[in-house]
Design a protein around this nucleic acid. Sequence first.
DNA 1: GTCTATACTGAGATAGAC
DNA 2: GTCTATCTCAGTATAGAC
Lengths: 210, 210
Amino acid sequence: MRSLPRSHLQVQKATLPATVPNGTRRRILETALRLFASEGFHGTSIRDVAKELELQPSALYSHFPSKEHILAELVQIGHEAHHEALRGALLNAGTEPAEQVRALVRAHTLLHAAHPQLAVVVNEEIHTLPPELSAPAMALRNQSAAFLREVIERGVAMGRFSPPHAVATAAAISAMGVRLPYWYEPAGTLDIETLADIHTELALRMLGRR
Amino acid sequence: MRSLPRSHLQVQKATLPATVPNGTRRRILETALRLFASEGFHGTSIRDVAKELELQPSALYSHFPSKEHILAELVQIGHEAHHEALRGALLNAGTEPAEQVRALVRAHTLLHAAHPQLAVVVNEEIHTLPPELSAPAMALRNQSAAFLREVIERGVAMGRFSPPHAVATAAAISAMGVRLPYWYEPAGTLDIETLADIHTELALRMLGRR
DNA sequence: GTCTATACTGAGATAGAC
DNA sequence: GTCTATCTCAGTATAGAC
């Protein structure tokens, strides 16, 4: 390997949500995920993936019709897990805007901390997919973004929040989670529950909750 | 083009800081920057760059010894501009921690808003460089990160700031700027001066300034 | 579902004339 | 400093046997 890896992302075992069934297909996805996160999609060849799995390159084509379809599946899995986590969090959060923000930020942060490689690949490589392969994920992404936006707008309307700018503040809150895989190391001193608490506190401070 | 481009990044003229002298070398860097931002480093071929410039591929090798060296130059330019902007801002900011944070966040945000493609390429592709080519930029990056970290630590020590966690809050403040190119469109209703004000306000709220 | 073998294409880079 | 021509290799993917 000639390139400079993302150090802690590379060594970590690439974790996929439990929703993906075991078997060769899952092993392909896990291996591709780790390599895509470390070397990028275009920087990883079908041969690299096959070698890691001790398979011949041709064997992969029994499971996926193309390398792009492997990426598309990862992108879809990531977006489904994210959307499901936010939806579930909101469902159990009561009606108070501050509680809803807490639930959303907590879920957003925990997911990015638990699946850092998936987050990196999903966010950096979705643009390399042709539109027909990325469309379902993009739809989910828009819905997930709307969760936070709507909670903030409702909190503002109810007089609970006073952010300097609703859209920019929503982006800032989301950015905390999205950037997590680039600096946070789960093996360090800061555990992910504490981190989620910190992010909820930062989000509520940005929103000027009263 | 088969891939889904980052819509507004693709159409925008790729801007390089004024420090890069005019000439063929600059034109190569600008074109490579636009293509790398849209298609990724590995997704862009030397032939793509040459075609866009109406040159033969071999002509590029009179200006750069390899494709990787083009990327390395862009990464270096980006890090130098960033470091220079933060250093200059801090120099003119007085001694009050809140003023220093304001200056740093303002510079950080303005730079990411003014050079979105450069920010994207620098952050997503620096890892594809071999360590010897990325080392100078990595050194600058560490110094730039230290600016904000030290101002926050000093503010905490002086009793001016009360962030829930200094490191995580510094990361959150930085993330606002880094994620800007992925959602902010300069052509829209939110001008970059207002945006910089919003980000400084958000940063100071996160820090709990009194 | 995995293998061996290979087709085909596009990649980065170089040689040498002008 | 740019051109034409070309080398060499690695890439995705397929054919057909087991």
